[in-house]
Nucleic acid binder design. Structure first.
Lengths: 369, 369
DNA sequence: GGGTGTTATGTTTACGTAAACATCTGGTGG
DNA sequence: CCACCAGATGTTTACGTAAACATAACACCC
C-alpha cells in the first residue's frame, strides 16, 4: 500500500561521500536531507510535513511520512531551537526536593509544561548559599531555557546579583514576591485563618503555633496570619515555638508544648512537624484530640494515617504548578510589550477535617455535646 | 584598567544593517560575532576563549573576556549542541514523583548530573498506560537529550514498542532489568533478608509480609526475598497481604492483620504502608512493639517520628541516583565500542533499628530479658 | 488566449558555534 | 640569510532546520 519504493540506495548518512574526518559517532541520525532524498522531494517539503504546515499534497505528504518512518527520522531539536530562537523548555530552580510542596509543585509544573509542549529542565541547588544560587543561575544563562520558575525563597535571589539572561521570563512559586517577579503562591493567610478559626470555634481559648524556620517566607506568613487571626478574635497569642519543618523538630517542640498546662490547641506550620508533635504529646501522655487539638498544613498523603488522622490545611500544589507554567508562558507571549506587572496569584486552600481536633477538655467549655 | 575601549559603536545586534524582517524578539542576545567585533578579533578566537582552548595570548584573552562581560555574552547552547552533536542533557522518565524513592533518586540524579556538567530534563508520565509511555518516549526522541534514565517498571517499557532514538543510552533505576538495559537498583533482597532475620532473631516464629502492588518489581522482589528467607530459616510463610504502597492501603491491610492471633511480626514493603499498619494495630488495641513488631522499608525522613519510631530498611537513594548518572555517562563514552553488557548494579541497604520491633509476647519465647 | 491568481514545490540563506584548514608572525639553526 | 617550525590568529565551512524568496503548474475570467 505504501507509495514509497523503499529499500533504495540512500542509507541515512548525511553527505557520505565527502571524506570529512567525522567524529566517530556511529549512530548518525537521519536528517531532513536524508528523508528528502528518499522521498524524492526537497528538504523544505519535509520541513513542511514535519511541522504540519499546509500546502503539501496529501500524496506527497504520505510519501514523506513513509520516508520518515523508514529512516526513523526525528527532528533535531538543537537545530530547531537554533533556528527558531526558542527551546520550548522551562527551567525549574529549587533548593531541594526534600519537601512535599516543592516536589508536588515540580510535578505539576512538569505535567503542565508537557501539556503545552514544553520540557522541564531541573536546576537543583543543593546548598542554599548565595554562591550556589549564583552558580545555578549562571548555568541557566547558557542553558537551553526560555523561562525559569523559581521554587524558593526569593530573598536569596535578590541577594544574588546574577542577572538572568535577557529574554528569560521568571515566575516565583511559594515565596515572597519582590516586585521584580510574578509570584504564584498558596493562600497562606487564608489557610492559616481557617485553621486557627476552626480551633477557636471549637472553644479553645487560644491557639499555639509551631512555626517553620525563620528564613522561610511561607513560615513567616503563616505565623503572621496566625497572630493576626488571634488578635482579631481578641485572643492573646502565646509565645511562638519554632521548628525547621522536620518531624524531629516538631517532636522537640512538642516535648516543650506538652508541659504547657494551658496549651489545648496547636497549629503546626506543616504536617511533618505535626507528626513529631503528635509523637511528643503521646509520649507525655497528652491525648489528641481529647486533651490537645492539633492541626497541620499541607495535607500530605500520609496525614490521614497519622495517630490520630490529622486535621490539616490542604494545599493545591498542582494548581500552583499549573499557574506557574501558565504565568511564564503568558509572559513569554507578551514578551516586551507592556509587561503585565509582577502581581501575585494566590491559590486557595481547604481545611480538611480529620481526627486530631476537638473541643477543649471540660474546664474551659462544656459547650458542644 | 581595562584594555577595551568600550562604549564603542557596536551594540549587541547581529547584522544590524541587513534589512531582514527580523522576528520581533527584542531581546537579542550577543553572539560570538558581536563579541569578536567589540574585542577586535575573529569569532574563532572568541570561541577559543569561550572553550578555554590554548593558543590564545593572555592579552587577547583578556580583551575577549572584557568584551564578553560588557555584552553579557552567553554561549548559545542550541548552536553549541547542533555543532557538537550532543546536548549535555540527561532525560529522566518516570511515572510519578509521588513516591519518596523516585523523588530522592531524581534529586540525586540531578545533583550528580549537574556535577558532571549535565542538565536534567524531566519527562513525567502521569498515567502508567502503555500509550503514555510511548508518548513520553517519542517526545524524548526529539528532545534535547543524550541519554535517558528510566525510573519505573521496565516491563512497561518492553511493552512499548517505541525505539529510542539511536545513540541515546539508557539506564533503568529501581526496576527489573530486561537484558537490554543497564540497571541500578537497591539491594532489595539483602534489605529484606536483614529485616526478616532481625525479626526471627528477636524470637518471632514467623514474619508476615505486607507487600506492595503486584505490578511493582521492587515489591515482587521484596516478597520473593521474604519468602526465601523464611523458608531458609525453616519457617512457613504466612499468606501474603497486599497493599498499593499508600498509607491507607497499609491501614486496610492492618485491620485484617490485627485479627490474626498468631501475627506477632510484620514486614511492610515500605514505610508509608507501615504507617497505616501502625494506625490499624493501634486502633485494634494491639501494641507495637509489645504485641506486634513492625518493620518498614525505605527509611523516609518521618519514619523516626512514627508512633512508635519505625525500625526500617534504609535505602540509599542518593547512591542509586549517582550510579545511574555514572552509568549513562560511561555508556556514552564507550558508545559503540564493545558495549559493556547491561549488568545490574546493586546498592546496599542498612537496617535502622528504632522502636517498632521487639521480642514477641511471652507465650512464644521468654528468651531475651 | 494572455493576464492573474492560487497552490505545490524547490532554492537560498541565516541561525550561532566550532572543527578544519589557511595564513601570518617571529624565532632558530644550518 | 633563508628554510623551517611553532604558535597565534583569521577564514571557510558544516551542523539541521525553517523563513523568505523563487518558480512552476494549473485554473479562471474577461
Amino acid at each position: 500500500m505504501d507509495t514509497t519504493d523503499s529499500e533504495s540506495a540512500s542509507t541515512p548518512q548525511t553527505r557520505a561521500g565527502a571524506g570529512t574526518t567525522r567524529a566517530d559517532r556511529r549512530v548518525q541520525r537521519a536528517s531532513m536531507a536524508d528523508v528528502a532524498r528518499l522521498a524524492g522531494v526537497s528538504s523544505q517539503t519535509v520541513s513542511r510535513v514535519s511541522n504540519g504546515y499546509s500546502g503539501v499534497t496529501e500524496e506527497t505528504r504520505q510519501q514523506v511520512l513513509a520516508a520518515m518512518k523508514e529512516l526513523g527520522y526525528r527532528p533535531n531539536s538543537a537545530a530547531r531551537a537554533l533556528k527558531r530562537g526558542e527551546f520550548r523548555t522551562i527551567g525549574v530552580i529549587t533548593f531541594s526536593l526534600a519537601t512535599t510542596g516543592n516536589v508536588r509543585t515540580l510535578e505539576a509544573i512538569a505535567t503542565s509544561a508537557a501539556h503545552e509542549g514544553y520540557a522541564v529542565t531541573l536546576l537543583p541547588v543543593a546548598v542554599p548559599t548565595q554562591d550556589e544560587v549564583r552558580g545555578a543561575f549562571s548555568r541557566l544563562g547558557e542553558l537551553a531555557v526560555d523561562a525559569v520558575i523559581v521554587i524558593m525563597e526569593v530573598h536569596l535571589l535578590d541577594a544574588a546579583t546574577v542577572s538572568l539572561p535577557p529574554g528569560v521570563q521568571v515566575v516565583v512559586a511559594d515565596s515572597d514576591a519582590g516586585d521584580r517577579y510574578s509570584v504564584v503562591d498558596t493562600d497562606q493567610a487564608g489557610g492559616t485563618r481557617a485553621a486557627v478559626r476552626h480551633l477557636l470555634d471549637l472553644g479553645h481559648r487560644t491557639v499555639w503555633h509551631l512555626a517553620g524556620p525563620q528564613e522561610s517566607f511561607a513560615a513567616q506568613r503563616r505565623a503572621d496570619a496566625w497572630r493576626v487571626t488571634l488578635t482579631d478574635a481578641g485572643c492573646a497569642p502565646p509565645p511562638l515555638v519554632r521548628g525547621d519543618w522536620s518531624a524531629e523538630s516538631g517532636y522537640q517542640a512538642g516535648l516543650r508544648l506538652a508541659d504547657e498546662a494551658d496549651c489545648s490547641a496547636v497549629f503546626a506550620a506543616n504536617d511533618q512537624m505535626a507528626l513529631g508533635l503528635l509523637r511528643a504529646l503521646h509520649e507525655r501522655g497528652r491525648r489528641v484530640p481529647e486533651d490537645v487539638s492539633v492541626i497541620g498544613f499541607d495535607d500530605i498523603p500520609e496525614a490521614g494515617s497519622f495517630l490520630p488522622p490529622l486535621t490539616t490545611v490542604h494545599q493545591d500544589f498542582a494548581e500552583v504548578g499549573r499557574r506557574c507554567v501558565e504565568g511564564v508562558l503568558r509572559q513569554m507571549r507578551e514578551d516586551g510589550e507592556e509587561m503585565t506587572e509582577p502581581g501575585t496569584t494566590l491559590v486557595p486552600t481547604r481545611l480538611v477535617m480529620r481526627g486530631s481536633t476537638a473541643s477543649p477538655p471540660s474546664p474551659s467549655s462544656p459547650s458542644s455535646l
